Amino acid sequence: MDRDSFWELIEECRRQAQSPDERLTWLRGELSRRSLTEVVQFQVCLDETTHEAFTWDLWAAADRIFGGWCSDDGFCYFGLWMVGLGREAFTRAVSEPDALAETPEVRRLVGSPREMWNDDDWPGWESLDYVAMEAYRVLSGVDDDCDEAFYGAVEAEQADGPESPGPLGERWDARSEEEAARKLPRLSAMFALRPLT
């Protein structure tokens, strides 16, 4: 599975189902009909894709959407959620984080208190990171030590490259209204910061 095939599967998943849970069910079923190698390659493509989104500018965009606070784990899940937006929206957001303001998924959140966001709207999709492993377990028929076998296969398939020690780019504070208005004007106008407690 190459990157184009990966994105075709994500796009088809978006066409087949609406909610994140329905998409996961569809994707798990689709991956379970493929070879173990393809399932592993799906995870490799997912890891490589989300790594592209591991930037300080996108973390700041997530901070704004979440009202000024996006944890380390929350940002990882946000990157997975961005994959679920589809290739075009993902690619655009990586190059211009403020473009997230144009996506229907982000626009739906505007004006709604974060406490009222439901699971389907929440800008995080942690479960996407486990769907390939679940399909691998079904295909291999191995329950014990499946995680170890799967992640070992993923590591063997990954290209050897330098690991990024942290997000790419320069870190900046999305809670600075002046800087946020300059770097993320649309998201800053759409999402107010939560008061410090």
Rank of each mutant, 00 (worst) to 15 (best):
D98A: 04
E170R: 15
L100I: 07
W172K: 12
P97E: 04
V94C: 12
E52T: 10
S35G: 07
Q41D: 15
S5W: 00
E30P: 00
F150I: 00
R186C: 09
L27W: 08
R137D: 07
D120M: 03
A180D: 12
P104N: 08
M116F: 02
W172Q: 09
E177K: 14
D4H: 06
L9V: 03
E148Y: 00
A174V: 13
W122M: 07
S164V: 10
S127M: 07
C146S: 12
D144K: 04
R14A: 04
D173L: 13
G74H: 08
F90C: 09
V106P: 01
E179P: 07
S176Q: 14
A17F: 03
G86M: 05
R23Y: 07
A101K: 05
E105W: 11
F42R: 06
V110I: 13
E96H: 15
A159K: 07
S140Y: 14
A62F: 10
R107K: 08
R34I: 02
D129R: 14
A99R: 12
L24S: 07
V138P: 01
L196A: 13
D173M: 12
D147V: 02
R171E: 14
E12V: 02
D143P: 01
D47G: 09
A99H: 09
G141Q: 06
E157S: 10
E126F: 06
A99G: 12
A189R: 15
F150S: 00
G79Y: 00
L109I: 05
A174I: 13
I65Q: 05
G29L: 06
F150K: 00
G74K: 08
R33N: 15
V39K: 04
A93M: 12
S32T: 13
L168Y: 14
E88A: 12
C76T: 09
W125A: 03
L196G: 07
P113R: 06
S35D: 01
E11W: 05
G124Y: 12
G79W: 00
R15V: 00
Y151E: 10
S112C: 04
W59V: 03
E12Q: 08
M82P: 01
E115D: 07
A99D: 12
A159F: 02
T37W: 11
D98E: 04
T55W: 02
R171H: 13
S176T: 15
E48Y: 13
C13F: 00
A174W: 10
W122V: 02
T197E: 15
S112N: 01
P162M: 14
W69C: 06
A189K: 14
F191T: 01
G74M: 09
A135K: 06
L27G: 03
R182F: 13
Q43P: 00
G111H: 05
L9G: 02
A156P: 09
E8D: 10
R186E: 15
D147A: 08
D129C: 11
W172E: 08
R14W: 02
Q43F: 00
G79E: 01
D119S: 01
L27Q: 05
